[in-house]
Each structure stands twice: as C-alpha cells, then as structure tokens.
C-alpha cells in the first residue's frame, strides 16, 4: 500500500500536526511500509468474532454524586502557558478566517 503525499497531509491535518515537506516524504514512506505489513490482518478470518476493546469484565463503574475535595484552582492553573483571572487564556477563536 502506497500512501500519497495528499493522504499524509489529510491525516496530519486530522491529527492537528503541522508537518514539514521533508516529514511528509518520510512519513509517507514509513506509513506505507507499516500499513503494508498490517495487511496481514486481512488474511485472518474474523467473521462473527466479537471485537475486544478492553479485557475487563466490568462495565460501568458508578459512584455517589457528592462533593469531594479537589485541586485548588491556583494549583490546577499552575502549569498553564497563559492564564488570567483564574481562566486558561487562548488566542482568539471567534474570528473570520
């Protein structure tokens, strides 16, 4: 399977990754060889086989809805690249592109 440059660009955009021209080339080559290798999955018959998303038997884990101690706001914000008045600060979102 050969992954085209356009395909690499499409996936990078979906993954929110800015990639360079050189990376497009390298990723194209690597993804092509890895996906070709993964084609061996197609040779296995999985008709009627339930997919495994987790090996656990348990399903939903519920807890009582009660107020518990939590991180103080200053501590939760301490790692933020930018914050203001107890909020995370980001570049403008509501703008025509």
């Amino acid at each position: 399977m050969r992954i085209s440059k356009e395909e690499v660009e499409r996936v990078a955009k979906l993954a929110r990754l800015e990639i360079t021209e050189a990376e497009k080339e390298v990723f194209g080559t690597h993804l092509s060889s890895i996906l070709t290798y993964m084609d061996k999955l197609k040779t296995l018959n999985t008709d009627g086989v339930e997919p495994t998303a987790t090996v656990l038997e348990q399903t939903n884990v519920l807890r009582e809805d009660k107020v518990c101690p939590s991180l103080p706001a200053e501590k939760a914000l301490a790692n933020a690249p930018e914050c203001e008045n107890g909020f995370f600060r980001v570049p403008k979102i509501l703008e025509e592109r």
Partner: peptide, 8 residues
C-alpha cells in the same frame, strides 16, 4: 479488524 484479531 485489529480489535477482532485481539479477541483471537
């Protein structure tokens, strides 16, 4: 497909 093979 991979999830099904994981079951196998």
């Amino acid at each position: 497909k991979a999830q099904a093979v994981r079951t196998l």
